[in-house]
């Protein structure tokens, strides 16, 4: 039941995944920014509480650039390491273990991809790696397709969150199959975070209006013409969509319904 107090009427609960409590439902990637400064500003403006990073071989040249870990305030942000770039379960599991050792987190965004051109998740490898990582004590947020039955299998494997793609990674095509996402969200009880394919603020809003618990995006902000402005837009899109979902939209109707009273209209003049 809604409160008539404007402050409490707009309150939302945090998104809880494992030990992580997120007040912002936007999770933001740290890739593709023009500079560390731009990344830091974009993260700040986006209002995110959780940022993703990738695990890669160190540059062996001592004149290597700055390390991203020097630019992420760990008191401010939860760091969610990903297994991006892994094309088999074994490599993804190794990558997750390296990440855990590196920053002492049991959180992992599991990605097992099928091929480099589509970057579509490989369902078999993803499920296999999810089982292995859950049994090794990881809090697994799993990137997957929008296939509802696969999401059920992943939930049964013990993942903490299911993260279906709205559309292919970095494609900016938005939410291609809202119906599949709706069914998926009905079938699983762990949080569902729409991950990948988000091109603009309305895509985030659509995902949140569908009932997603959060949205994870990177390219949509980092590759926008003005990343900082887009970070603000994504933040607002997320809040707008979430509030609209909680508020409950009106049903779609074929015919008009007047919003002004139909009684008391002055008589039409024949003159």
């Amino acid at each position: 039941m809604q409160s008539s107090n404007p402050e409490t009427a707009l309150k939302d609960k945090p998104l809880v995944i494992g030990d992580m409590r997120l007040n912002s439902r936007l999770l933001v990637g740290t890739g593709k920014y023009a500079s560390m400064d731009e990344m830091k500003s974009a993260l700040e403006i986006s209002g995110t509480d959780c940022v993703t990073v990738a695990v890669r071989r160190v540059e062996l040249d001592p004149k290597r650039g700055e390390n991203i870990l020097d630019h992420i305030d760990r008191d401010r942000y939860q760091i969610l390491p990903n297994t991006a770039g892994c094309f088999d379960a074994k490599t993804a599991v190794r990558t997750a273990r390296l990440a855990r050792e590196l920053i002492g987190t049991n959180l992992v965004k599991l990605e097992v991809l099928g091929d480099e051109r589509t970057l579509l998740p490989d369902p078999i490898g993803t499920l296999e790696a999810a089982r292995e990582l859950v049994s090794d004590g990881f809090c697994v947020l799993v990137y997957t397709s929008d296939d509802p039955r696969l999401a059920v299998h992943l939930e049964q494997a013990g993942v903490a969150a299911v993260m279906p793609a709205g559309s292919p990674i970095g494609s900016g095509q938005g939410i291609l199959n809202p119906n599949a996402l709706r069914i998926l969200m009905e079938l699983v009880s762990v949080p569902v975070i729409v991950d990948a394919g988000v091109g603009t603020a309305s895509d985030v809003a659509v995902a949140m209006e569908l009932g997603a618990e959060g949205v994870l995006l990177n390219t949509g902000i980092a590759a926008a013409r003005e990343p900082l402005r887009m970070a603000a837009a994504m933040r607002d899109g997320c809040t707008a969509g979430r509030q609209a979902f909680l508020a409950g939209r009106i049903p779609r109707k074929l015919y008009a319904t007047a919003s002004s009273p139909v009684e008391g209209v002055i008589e039409a003049s024949n003159a």
Partner: peptide, 10 residues
Amino acid sequence: VEIVTMVGGG
């Protein structure tokens, strides 16, 4: 030997 670190990523 593999030595890895964190980099920007989604």
